[in-house]
């Protein structure tokens, strides 16, 4: 068994244990056993190779938001929901404080390596094939370039803050674009629609009320 595959499976197992903590016994053992079975099937089908390690890690990372959402759904129906929410809020407060003091500089390093690793991963998993085009290779190259720019910018900030921050911002642009497309733009669209909808509703309702008032007079 490849050490990386064992590490990925162990990470997925630990994550599953973490997000199922506090659930009732049935839900907890079912989810843990199901992930255990999946990891085994996945690892065995790819002979616990490096590819298995990468795929298992990716599947675990990419599924984390869904896992968290599933966990929240379980909590809503459980008796301990209020206690869990209170604990989570308390932890979130402490995490926010830590992020503000120490996390942000560390995060740029993590982000840089994540981009570099993600870029390399895409380039390795989807090598250039003339019939399929170079889409993933371009995205992979972009990721590697972005990671290197963030890394370089961070080391430059103490001595040359302007060029350091510019490099960091340029490197983080892909992430900003993703945030813009998935969070900021939809929220802005929703705000505009709500505002316009309320205005249209008021414009439609006003003449009717005026008419009703003139009728009653």
């Amino acid at each position: 068994m490849n050490a990386a595959a064992r590490l990925s499976a162990g990470f997925a197992r630990t994550w599953t244990r973490a997000y199922t903590l506090g659930l009732d016994t049935n839900a907890k053992t079912d989810r843990r056993a199901e992930i255990e079975s999946d990891l085994w099937e996945h690892g065995t089908s790819l002979h616990w190779s490096g590819r298995a390690a990468l795929e298992m890690a990716l599947r675990c990372f990419l599924g984390m938001p869904a896992d968290a959402a599933w966990r929240a759904e379980q909590a809503r129906t459980g008796e301990r929901a209020a206690a869990i929410i209170a604990t989570l809020l308390h932890r979130a407060e402490r995490i926010t404080e830590w992020v503000a003091r120490r996390g942000l500089p560390g995060m740029t390093t993590v982000l840089a390596w994540a981009f570099i690793a993600g870029g390399l991963l895409l380039t390795l998993l989807f090598p250039f094939q003339p019939e399929k085009g170079a889409g993933m290779v371009v995205v992979g190259g972009w990721g590697i370039g972005a990671g290197l720019a963030i890394r370089w910018g961070k080391t430059r900030i103490p001595n040359r803050p302007v060029s350091g921050f510019l490099a960091l911002a340029a490197g983080a642009a892909p992430l900003s674009l993703i945030l813009l497309a998935t969070v900021i733009a939809p929220l802005a669209a929703l705000a505009v629609l709500t505002f316009e909808g309320r205005r249209a509703w008021a414009a439609w309702r006003l003449p009717k009320e005026a008419l009703r008032m003139s009728d009653s007079q």
Binding site: A12, T16, R31, E34, I35, D38, H42, S45, E55, L58, R59, C60, F61, L62, G63, M64, P65, A66, D67, A68, A69, W70, L125, K132
Partner: peptide
């Protein structure tokens, strides 16, 4: 997850969280 990937060769295997949820 493998069957869904086979239907669309360009996609990655569905993540654990998404699939089991």
């Amino acid at each position: 997850a493998r069957q869904m990937q086979a239907g669309d060769a360009s996609r990655l295997l569905t993540s654990h969280g998404t699939l089991y949820k």
